[in-house]
Amino acid sequence: MSSFAYYSLPGFGEQCREQYGFSDACIIGDRMIITGQTGMDPVTCQTAPDLEAQVAQAFENIKALIERTLQQAQHPAYQEGKSGWEHVVKLHAYFVGLSAVRDEARAIMVRHIKQACPNHQPLFTMVGIESLPFPEHRVELEVDVWIG
């Protein structure tokens, strides 16, 4: 059985580990699982009000989390200057009130996926939900990462 190694981003991620007992990322063998990342800046804990900015921040949080996790784990997949998104194989997107912003949300996600993953097309699921734990959050993204 593979051993588990857990990681978190500085700021809110480490705060969640200490206060609530959960982490941002886990490496299990050749796989990294990333928990939901929102449009909140993990250092300032600020969330932009518009959907585009929240999606952009969530993508940035995932990038930073993959890079930091690989670096801290001293994993051979870590390469300085790489985005981390080249390892993403599946992306789940959860949107609050998706039916009201469906076309806008789809267009934003397609744009960010193409930018983050120019050389591959990860699996993608987009789901509408009622709410997220913080009322200002409108989107949450989680990814599965292959680092073998």
Rank of each mutant, 00 (worst) to 15 (best):
C45S: 11
Q46L: 13
Q46G: 13
T47G: 10
T47L: 10
T47R: 11
A48R: 14
A48H: 15
A48Y: 15
A48W: 13
P49V: 01
P49Y: 06
P49R: 02
D50L: 10
D50V: 05
D50E: 10
L51E: 09
L51D: 10
A53G: 04
A53E: 11
Q54V: 11
Q54M: 12
V55S: 02
V55H: 03
Q57A: 14
A58M: 02
F59G: 08
F59Y: 12
F59L: 05
F59V: 15
F59K: 09
E60R: 14
N61C: 06
I62R: 02
I62P: 05
I62L: 08
K63D: 00
A64Q: 09
I66E: 00
E67W: 04
R68K: 11
R68Q: 08
T69V: 08
L70F: 01
Q71T: 02
Q71P: 06
Q71V: 09
Q72K: 09
Q72R: 09
H75C: 05
P76V: 10
P76K: 05
A77K: 03
Y78P: 00
Y78I: 01
Q79H: 14
E80A: 06
E80G: 02
E80Y: 06
G81H: 12
G81P: 05
G81K: 02
K82E: 05
G84L: 00
G84Y: 08
E86A: 12
E86N: 02
K90G: 01
K90T: 06
L91G: 01
L91Y: 12
L91N: 07
H92W: 14
H92C: 15
H92R: 13
A93T: 14
F95R: 15
V96A: 07
V96E: 06
V96L: 12
G97W: 07
G97T: 04
G97M: 03
L98I: 07
L98Q: 06
L98V: 05
L98F: 11
A100M: 08
A100Q: 13
A100I: 05
V101L: 00
V101C: 04
V101G: 03
V101T: 09
V101I: 11
R102D: 07
R102S: 06
D103C: 07
D103E: 14
D103A: 15
E104R: 04
R106V: 15
R106G: 00
A107M: 13
A107V: 07
I108Q: 04
M109G: 13
V110Q: 11
V110M: 13
R111N: 03
H112M: 07
H112G: 11
H112T: 07
K114D: 11
K114T: 09
